[in-house]
């Protein structure tokens, strides 16, 4: 039986993103079948397709030095398909993760918002850069841009999943973290640690029962944010100390926005703001830039 499973297993484990895609897709499928406020299937198709097309377009325009192009061409060679080099160099995994995150978080009452959001997300990755890294997490950029540009069309529903789905998803995301042994898995845990500490601290200060911070922690949006946005190795500081500072700053800012200013989308605004500081942190605390697939 090992012989049958191994190719799939090896494929899944060659890159942390394969597992991430598997987790996000499973969650999305589950919601599509069992949830009242799941995204429309049209939305999913349009978002994913637009993100992939945008990725192809931008790769074609800026043929970047994708180091994982070889890994892909290996599979293409096996299939004896000949494709132009720039297309081989196009990576489809990141836009897939981005668009799945968008499908899960972004809500809008106009269909055209979704391809536009996907385009903005992927575009930001290629256009807003510093040295070898993009500044913003693409999905987070699209969400914040959507909220700012179309305040009458776009919203985020942070309280949308029940506790059961939350638990299942939390376990799956944690499993991905462990299995993929991604070097930057620490980012999600750092953020969740700081965020949890702030919620707990608030409850202790207010004299609230512990059920309250626990309940606040059980947010589906928080999980996607922690495991698939802030943990994006391309938009986090390279140095461990930098990452600790980055996680703490994001958590503190989000906490202030959420509880002091009553901003319901606090996490996304906070990450948007702190991402700008990453090039400065990197210039002070130097370390090797992360490369996908080298985990």
């Amino acid at each position: 039986m090992g012989a049958v499973i191994r190719p799939v297993g090896t494929f899944l484990f060659t890159d942390a993103r394969h597992l991430q895609i598997a987790t996000l897709s499973s969650l999305l499928l589950f919601l599509l079948f069992f949830h009242d406020f799941a995204p429309d299937i049209k939305v999913v198709f349009m978002t994913v397709l637009s993100a992939l097309i945008a990725q192809i377009f931008f790769c074609w325009v800026f043929i970047f030095n994708h180091r994982d192009a070889e890994a892909q061409s290996f599979y293409l060679k096996k299939l004896r398909v000949s494709v132009p080099l720039w297309l081989i160099k196009t990576d489809f995994r990141s836009p897939f993760i981005t668009s799945l995150s968008l499908c899960l978080l972004l809500k809008a009452n106009a269909l055209w918002v979704f391809p536009l959001a996907a385009l903005a997300a992927i575009g930001s990755k290629f256009l807003i850069r510093h040295k070898d890294k993009h500044i913003f997490n693409p999905a987070n950029f699209a969400i914040v841009a959507g909220l700012i540009v179309f305040p009458d069309l776009v919203w985020v529903s942070p309280g949308q999943w029940g506790a059961d789905i939350w638990l299942g998803f939390a376990l799956a995301a944690a499993a991905v973290l462990v299995l993929s042994t991604a070097r930057r898995g620490d980012m999600a845990l750092l953020f969740l640690g700081f965020w949890g500490a702030l919620l707990l601290g608030r409850a202790l200060w207010l004299g609230d029962p512990l059920e309250i911070p626990l309940h606040q922690f059980q947010s589906g949006a928080l999980l996607i944010f922690a495991f698939f946005m802030i943990s994006d190795p391309k938009t986090t500081p390279d140095h461990l100390l930098g990452r600790v500072m980055f996680a703490a700053a994001t958590a503190l800012l989000a906490f202030t926005l959420q509880f002091e200013f009553q901003v319901r989308e606090a996490l996304f605004y906070a990450l948007f703001a702190t991402c700008v500081s990453v090039p400065f942190i990197d210039s002070v605390l130097k370390a090797k830039t992360y490369q996908w697939g080298n985990a």
Binding site: K107, A108, N109, D152, L153, V154, W155, S157, G159, P209, E211, I212, L214, H215, Q216, R264
Partner: peptide, 17 residues
């Protein structure tokens, strides 16, 4: 009290369905 430990936080969405 157990199932709703926290006050209900609300938001107005753009959903007009």
């Amino acid at each position: 009290g157990e199932s709703f430990p926290e006050d209900i936080m609300l938001q107005v969405t753009d959903d007009r369905e």
